[in-house]
Design a protein around this nucleic acid. Sequence first.
DNA 1: ATAAACTCCGTACCCAGGTACAGAGTCAAG
DNA 2: CTTGACTCTGTACCTGGGTACGGAGTTTAT
Lengths: 136, 136
Amino acid sequence: MSKLDMDQNELTIGRLAEFANVNVETVRYYQRIGLVDEPEKPEQGFRKYPNSTVKQIKFIKRAQQLGFNLQEITDLLELGDSHCHDVRIRAELKRDKISKQIKDLQDMQTALTNLIDTCHTGKTEPKCPLVESLFA
Amino acid sequence: MSKLDMDQNELTIGRLAEFANVNVETVRYYQRIGLVDEPEKPEQGFRKYPNSTVKQIKFIKRAQQLGFNLQEITDLLELGDSHCHDVRIRAELKRDKISKQIKDLQDMQTALTNLIDTCHTGKTEPKCPLVESLFA
DNA sequence: ATAAACTCCGTACCCAGGTACAGAGTCAAG
DNA sequence: CTTGACTCTGTACCTGGGTACGGAGTTTAT
């Protein structure tokens, strides 16, 4: 095993960030809030990060895309491998929350569409019926 | 017209906030960002707000519920009565944005549901398949 | 051996949309 | 005429998810 191979498993923060497609400052931020472990600082030189941290950050980013916030992701990671049932419960809760968000947005959409229709009817009104109906 | 009637049309900030169902600090905040006009401070006593400000704040709150942010609401109010066509365009743009948000959330929902199904298949796995598949 | 590039550390700042609070002035009721 | 409730003003703080920066120290390439 060459020194180069070792290096790929012992990343500096810059390379870690590069592989994980995040900013270096983001990694430090995740460490600050306890979402990612910070390796001990060696006597000599810079901190070394294992390859697994790349995966962990990618996990975080995927979970964010699913609508989990960082606190929820922290909780998920703390649950870890052991409490599969709890993880599923959380995923289901999140799915339900998303359903509600969708419903709210659909209501907004409907209301907006109604307003826009109002606006279409009165062509050259002195006052915009859309604004008027929001005021009413 | 009694003095009491006058008072109802000349509100203090506290009564304004009460009628508009917002916090006094929120009114001040809206004034700070130029969303609501701040009346001149009289030589003697406190500022007086016209009843129309109540309507204006309620408009803001309704528009927020439709997904407009305060900057967009500022723009809408500046357009005022005159440019009905522009108002309609903005409403349509907002509606389109909401459509996209709904689509994104539906994608999240699908992804979460798939993960939850994965979780159901492996009953008593040593590692949670849901977490594993997020890591993969 | 030196310069560029990187890391470390602490702290400050960004966004939106407010909320909180201190200290002073003012108003209204009893 | 005093007491309690309200207003005014300025400034600081909050949440979430980062980003920026300054002045070290360290490493790597030439």
